[in-house]
Design a protein around this nucleic acid. Structure first.
Lengths: 129, 129
DNA sequence: CTTGACCTTGCCATTATGGGAAGGTGCAAG
DNA sequence: CTTGCACCTTCCCATAATGGCAAGGTCAAG
């Protein structure tokens, strides 16, 4: 399987497949006689795992650990759970930060006439404080 | 006022003050006889505006527009409001994305024993799908 | 043999921020 | 005056994850 097909099958772009290989997240792909990277279903399986983890917001560093645990037959599920919950906490922290921003802006905007006059509490707020 | 003092007064690091000048977000600072950048209260005022806008999650591009509106005496508050609400929408979109991730992970983690056995629904989920 | 789709590597760009090096400046204490 | 420390200057590099482009090799169909 060429890289393009593996990319389509896994949902990871060919560009990123090469990148993941370059940073050592996945093993170096075998090469066909013509020098093209050659993939099999197991490789696609790994790539799909990565893709799914990325979709859940895990960083590459996290995924490196997840992959290690995944391939470790003697892993302890507690380690996976810890990683996941740690990530949940990080996500929730980002969420509250963003919510605070959105709420502040929302309330400022609610006080803004939004017409053709220049007076605007949003700018006033940014200006002061 | 040297850059360090302006940085302390505005809450923007000296590094970023230079950067904002380099990308044309703020006007080139005047220079003292020794070549040091020289700031006054008005400059600090602008920097503080930027800092506050960054705290609300506005991008540099957004801030460029906000600064233009701020200094435009004939601005229409509708333009500011539109910018702000557009940003709120973007924030909320990011929030729902993060919440979806957090909830998915949360429910997967809830199904994970978290003990010394290797079986883990989190890995199973990443693996399948 | 040409054309088009695919592969290769390598470099650059993004966003916002920080780190560090190498060297100049200014002020205070010895 | 010299030493030292804190500050300034510019320039380069790094981050995280991804995309784009360019120059060139490969392969299959027409």
């Amino acid at each position: 399987m060429n890289i393009g097909e593996a990319a389509r099958a896994s949902g990871v772009s060919a560009k990123m497949v090469r990148h993941y290989e370059a940073i050592g997240l996945v093993a170096k792909a075998g090469r066909a006689a013509n020098g093209y990277r050659d993939y099999d279903d197991a490789d696609v399986h790994v790539l799909r795992f990565i893709r799914r983890a990325r979709d859940l917001g895990f960083s590459i560093a996290d995924i490196r650990e997840l992959l290690a645990l995944w391939s470790d037959r003697s892993r302890q599920s507690a380690d996976v759970k810890r990683l996941a919950l740690h990530h949940v906490a990080a996500l929730e922290q980002r969420i509250v930060g963003l919510q605070a921003m959105a709420e502040t802006l929302q309330s400022l905007a609610a006080c803004c006439a939004g017409d053709d006059r220049p007076d605007c509490p949003i700018l006033t707020e940014l200006e002061s404080h």
